[in-house]
């Protein structure tokens, strides 16, 4: 199950993030403070939820912010969504760490580079601005059946591939794929309805 008492919200303030991204691109150290103040807690919470070790989480969050700092020139301030990009990097670092620790080293640098490329995090603001994601996502997850909740949990917090989920849950791969697609469909629909409302 997802954790109870979920109170985090994505603070995706488009205009502020645009200014912040430009300052980061100008290599202003003060901008890094602002970036951390805006997303540090959320990034730490995401990483800690995955790795479940505070010291490791600190290292990975530091690595996340360094990666953003080093790759910010590829970010488009007017179109990019800084928060989702940073949080994707944070989660990827965490999942990668967990999988490395368990010797499931099947991800490569190329794949992570593609998955974290800033171009995948553009034009999100119009969809997510002023949207209370924490409330919506909690509500949406409640609408998933137990199997769907389970695969989303295994996916988000453990980064298990669908084949690994099939082995873990003792289900055919096709069934797992169906559950994953259905679960993501429900979440996407709920989020879409909230944005459209």
């Amino acid at each position: 199950m997802f954790f109870p008492g979920l109170i985090l919200a994505l603070e995706l303030s488009g205009q502020h993030d645009e200014d912040l991204a430009r300052r980061l691109q100008r290599r202003e150290p003060e901008a890094m403070k602002d970036l951390y103040d805006r997303y540090g807690k959320l990034a730490y919470s995401v990483v800690l939820a995955v790795v479940r070790d505070a010291a490791t989480a600190e290292d990975l969050v530091q690595e996340t912010f360094l990666r953003v700092w080093n790759r910010i020139q590829a970010f488009e301030p007017g179109r990019g969504a800084l928060g989702p990009w940073l949080l994707a990097i944070a989660r990827n670092r965490a999942i990668d760490h967990v999988r490395s620790s368990s010797s499931k080293m099947d991800r490569n640098a190329f794949e992570l580079d593609v998955r974290e490329h800033p171009s995948l995090f553009v034009d999100m603001q119009h969809e997510v601005e002023n949207t209370d994601y924490a409330r919506i996502i909690r509500s949406a997850i409640k609408k998933l059946n137990p199997n769907q909740q389970k695969v989303i949990e295994l996916a988000y917090y453990e980064g298990l591939s669908q084949t690994e989920m099939a082995e873990r849950l003792g289900q055919p791969l096709g069934t797992i794929k169906t559950w994953v697609r259905a679960a993501l469909g429900v979440l996407r629909e709920e989020l879409g309805q909230a944005v459209a409302a």
């Binding site: 954790f3 979920l6 985090l8 994505l10 919470s45 969504a81 999100m124 994601y133 996502i137 979440l187």
Partner: peptide, 8 residues
Amino acid sequence: AAMSGAVA
């Protein structure tokens, strides 16, 4: 990205 909103 939205799923991060469900994290403790």
